[in-house]
């Protein structure tokens, strides 16, 4: 019963919005604002098997690779910087500067060096944009590790590798997750943006092509599809987080109760 109530709360607003859109656009004659019924009608034929294998999946693959590269690099460098005070003092202002640079402006620069038709440049764009929140949050998390916990690890002679895995990474994982979540939404944005410049295939590129060829209902389907994919990715992320950080939720609840 509680599950049903929660579900009802979660779904109420989307349903209302879709219904409003449906009826508000029902009789629309405008080319740019086609009726929702028409958009839904062309959805299936627009995103056929060929588009999935040729556009959607390659886009998602580039996102996955770029995001994972950013995750590995960000956590690795973040741990390194976070554990060593001198390195931190040396790097941090510079990192803050790079974080402040909006990732899309990197696209022309990357295009200059790597060209912009291949996969590499797009993956690099996504990775370069995603790495900052992960990196800076990891630094923050590692810096905030409890002294007593680190002393305990030393007293029981945990090796550097065990300390890294069992103490540093686990202890910083709540912050790392926060950074990774920010990075995910940046990644989705960059997945699209990286395809707007080099006019070839991909989910973002398809949307632009629909718009340029005045296939407006198809363009809308692309936007809806993007929204759904972004939502599913965030649900997936939340699931992983829910499982990996169960201890952290419990700890916080226990702290509040005490």
């Amino acid at each position: 019963m509680r599950l049903l109530t929660t579900l009802a709360y979660a779904l109420a607003l989307p349903i209302v919005l879709v219904v409003v859109w449906w009826f508000a656009s029902a009789g629309s004659e405008s080319v740019f604002w086609p009726p929702l019924s028409k958009i839904v009608g062309v959805f299936g034929e627009t995103w056929n098997a060929d588009r999935w294998t040729g556009d959607v999946l390659p886009s998602l693959a580039r996102l996955a690779v770029g995001y994972l590269v950013a995750l590995v690099l960000g956590v690795l460098l973040g741990v390194l910087i976070g554990l060593h005070r001198p390195v931190r003092a040396f790097c941090e202002p510079t990192l803050e500067f790079f974080r402040a640079v909006p990732p899309p402006v990197l696209v022309p620069v990357i295009a200059l060096f790597l060209g912009y038709t291949g996969d590499t440049s797009k993956v690099v764009t996504i990775a370069v944009g995603c790495v900052w929140p992960i990196l800076l949050n990891t630094v923050e998390g590692v810096r905030g590790l409890d002294e007593v916990m680190l002393d305990t690890a030393r007293c029981y002679r945990l090796s550097a590798w065990t300390r890294l895995r069992q103490v540093v990474l686990r202890g910083a994982s709540p912050q790392i997750a926060a950074g990774a979540r920010q990075a995910l939404s940046i990644g989705v944005i960059l997945m699209v943006i990286s395809e707007l410049f080099g006019a070839n295939r991909g989910l973002g590129a398809s949307i632009v092509q629909f718009q340029r060829s005045f296939a407006i209902p198809q363009m809308w389907t692309g936007i809806i599809l993007l929204g759904i994919l972004g939502f599913l990715l965030s649900v997936l992320f939340r699931l992983v987080e829910h499982y990996a950080l169960a201890w952290y939720r419990g700890l916080r609840q226990a702290d509040r109760g005490a």
Binding site: D146, E147, V148, M149, D151, T152, C155, Y156, R157, L158, S159, T162, Q166, V167, R170, G171, S173, W247, Y248, G250, L251
Partner: peptide, 27 residues
């Protein structure tokens, strides 16, 4: 072996009781 005053900060909250006791032995 050292037992610290701050038990809450000396045990690893992501490990179970058994894993906490076992970790140094594994090492």
């Amino acid at each position: 072996a050292v037992v610290f005053q701050e038990y809450g900060r000396s045990l690893f909250p992501w490990l179970t009781v058994r894993q906490n006791v076992e970790l140094p032995l594994k090492e």
